[in-house]
Structure formats: C-alpha cells, structure tokens
Design a protein around this nucleic acid. Structure first.
Lengths: 219, 219
DNA sequence: AAAAATTTTTACCATTTGGTAAAGCCAAGA
DNA sequence: TCTTGGCTTTACCAAATGGTAAAAATTTTT
C-alpha cells in the first residue's frame, strides 16, 4: 500500500513517525499550507525560479520548518506534481465509452476548460514542467498518462470505425483539446492583454470551442 | 533610427563604440555565438534556470567575455526575445486582406506549424516568458503584438460580416491557432512520449489541423 | 614597427540559496 | 509536576551564481 502521507522518492526520515503513524492534525495543516504556498510560487516562477524562502514566506513558516516537513525543494515539487496528476487526468477518465461520441468529447472539452479556469496555477505548474522536458515528472507521464491516452485513443478510433465520428486522428484531436483549453491558463498574461477586459474570456472561449469541436466532429 | 547592434534597454556602454560605429567582424561573430548559445540554454531551462556559465560553455567563451558583449543575463534574454518577436509575428503579418479568407487562414495555420517545427527553441523561449507572466516582454507585446492582433481580428471580423466566413470570434480563432500549433513545440516532451515514434508527428499534425480549421471555417 | 584600440583571461567578490545542527518551545501523558 | 516527543526557531554553512577590476593578449591603425 502506498502511504499518502509520504512523498515521491524518499530515503530520509525527517518526521520520525511519518511513515508509520497517522499524520497529526498540525502536520496535516502545515503540509497543506506548504503545498499551497509552493503551488503559488512554483507556478509563478518555475522550479528554479522559486526559492524556499519565498515558499516559506507565502506559507507563513520558517524555512527550516518547511524542511522539517519535506526532504527538500525537489520533494515539494514532486509531491505537488504527483498530486496534480490525478486531478489532471480525471476529466479524461470520465469520458464514457457507452455515451454518445460527440457529446462525450464536447463534455470533455468543457471540463478541461473549466479546469483551466478554476485551477490555473496547477495548469501552469504542469506546463512549466513539460516545457522544460518533463525532467521530474516523466515517470508519472509514462505510468499514468500514457496508458490512459492510449486507451482513449483506441476508444475514439473505435467510434470512428463505427462511423459514429468522421475520420480523424484521435491523438491529434486530444492534443488540440489540451492545447486550446490549457492555453487560457498557461498564456493568461497574453490572453488578458489581447482580450478586452470587459467581457468574460472564459464564457466566449467556451462558446468558441464548442463551435469548433462541434464542426470538427459532425462534419 | 534604431541601432540593431544595441540591445533592449541599456544605459551602460561596455563596448566603447558599439552605439556609434559598425560592429567589427569578431563582434558580430561572438554576439551571434552568444545569442545562439543563450537561446539553447534559456529555452531548455527558463530564465532563472539558465546560468551564465552554461551559456558561456555552450558558446565556447568565458563568462567575463560574455559580459563584455552584453550588459548582463537580463540583457541577453531581452535581446533574444526582441529579435524573436519579429519572426514570431511575421506569419500573421503575411495574412493578406485581399486574399481568400479560408485560404489565408489555413495558410497561416501551416506557416505557424512550420515555425513550431523549425524553431522549437524559439517557441519554448517565448512560451516560458508568457507562462511566467511576461515580466520582461510585456512592453513588446503591447507595442507590437497587440496592434497587429487587433488589426487581424478586425480583418477576420470583416470577412465574417461579408459572409465570406461563418460566424466566429476572431480572437478565439487566433488563440486556437496559436495554441494548437505551438503545442507541438512547447509540449514536445509530452507529445513525443505519447506519439508512436515511428510516424512523422508534424505531417499528421498538419493534416489534422487542416481538417479541423477547414471544417470550422467552411461550416 | 610602434601606438592605439579592441578582445580575452585571470583572479576575485558579494549575494543568494538550499540545506543543517542544535538548542528551545510547547502540549499531552505519567 | 515532571517528563517525553513532536514542533519551531536561531544561527549557521558551503556551493552556486551574477558580476567586476585589471592585467594580458590580440588585432587594427598610423
């Protein structure tokens, strides 16, 4: 069994009982504080751009105190990334093989767009990691993302074979969905500069993406 | 007149004649070496992740020698970004108001995809900067990108008004083009992990994007 | 060739930063 | 009350890193 309290690849044992006993209330609270602060800082400045001092300040704790709860900067980053992966894959997992192809895919697009709006920090954290060659998260990608991706590609290919979708490359369809939805979180600084501040970017984006993918999938 | 030899926002004058006289042959060569090395390093590790030592090693020069040609790390980065902006906007500039709307936009998509394939380092450098809130390039975005964006949005809106394109939001159309094409460069590590290494990713991506935007624009 | 200007290297420096050791604090149980 | 064990702080450190001064080497000009 995997102990949810312990992070990624660890050898040391800074918290004497961490691997065995239940985390105390204060432990839960502080780990949460740290991870939340780290998400903020890492997503804004990238792994190397972030400093433990910044994270400590954001969390309202001292730097050594942070290192009491995590084995180091890398440990915090990896913990964050691992936790993120679950939520990240969720919308794709929910794509239902028994449902209507067009409806399922359009719903997936909307769920992805919702995530970009509600979790922009997570999106940027992930984007930054991939952008730099996924040095820390590649194993996670191989073990969790790749199988799911292959499974859903096969599903979409089947839908195409059955004539329930027009001919298209499932892999590139998924890439296009990821790219267009995450764009609003990852490139937010550019988007907000180019959009008139007046109207709701995400609302109009939702309409546009629905239009685009509807036309693609019902040709 | 803007002196191409001088970089972004500078006050100091490390090269005595740089602002006035023509750059010597050796000066041209070394500045080029440094910028090329810096592009490599910055695009792989981001601004803060890159070190002058890495850039120096990659360029085959010593660190102080690099600081003889540039005012500092920031100066190199900004120079790179400014030079990039031109090439980056070029494909959009080329979108011809007198041409056929669908053809023009599809051609733009292909040009953008070509750029992602041929200049992935530039794409990632730009993406990294935007991802972190465009702290160094925002003025360039405002002065160069924004006016061009607005102009082309107006053009596309006119095409829609004239009934030569189906109803759509020009802003989100452009975002979708940027997102889907740059995705192949910016998220290359993920894409290459998910695609079977066998087939040509960019070739199939080109077909997919042509299909997708054709269906969107000819509905 | 000598002088002048430019380019490169050597030897540093100050700051930042991830991380540690050890003493002090504080709450719960004996 | 006293002790035990987890939690926090204070005071550090070694390495990395952006940057500089000035001498040495090289190229260009006269």
């Amino acid at each position: 069994m995997y102990n949810a309290c312990k992070s990624g690849t660890s050898e040391k044992n800074p918290l004497p009982e961490k691997t065995q006993k239940k985390p105390s209330r204060i432990q839960q609270r502080n780990r949460r504080l740290i991870l939340d602060a780290a998400l903020e800082v890492f997503s804004r400045h990238g792994f190397r751009g972030a400093t433990l001092d910044q994270i400590a300040a954001e969390a309202g704790l001292s730097k050594p105190n942070i290192l009491y709860y995590f084995d180091g900067k890398e440990d915090i980053h990896l913990t964050l990334l691992s936790q993120l992966m679950e939520n990240w894959l969720d919308p794709l997992v929910e794509m239902n093989p028994a449902g209507d192809p067009v409806k399922e895919i359009l719903a997936y697009v909307q769920r992805k767009l919702d995530m970009a709006r509600e979790l922009p920090r997570e999106s940027r954290l992930f984007a930054g990691e991939i952008l730099q060659g996924a040095p820390r998260i590649r194993p996670e990608l191989e073990h969790h993302l790749k199988p799911l991706f292959d499974e859903k590609c096969a599903l979409i290919a089947r839908w195409v074979d059955e004539g329930r979708l027009p001919p298209l490359d499932p892999r590139h369809l998924i890439f296009s969905i990821w790219a267009t939805t995450q764009h609003y979180a990852d490139f937010e600084s550019q988007v907000s500069l180019l959009m008139d501040a007046a109207d709701d970017t995400y609302a109009s984006a939702a309409r546009h993406l629905e239009t685009m993918f509807t036309r693609l999938l019902t040709a």
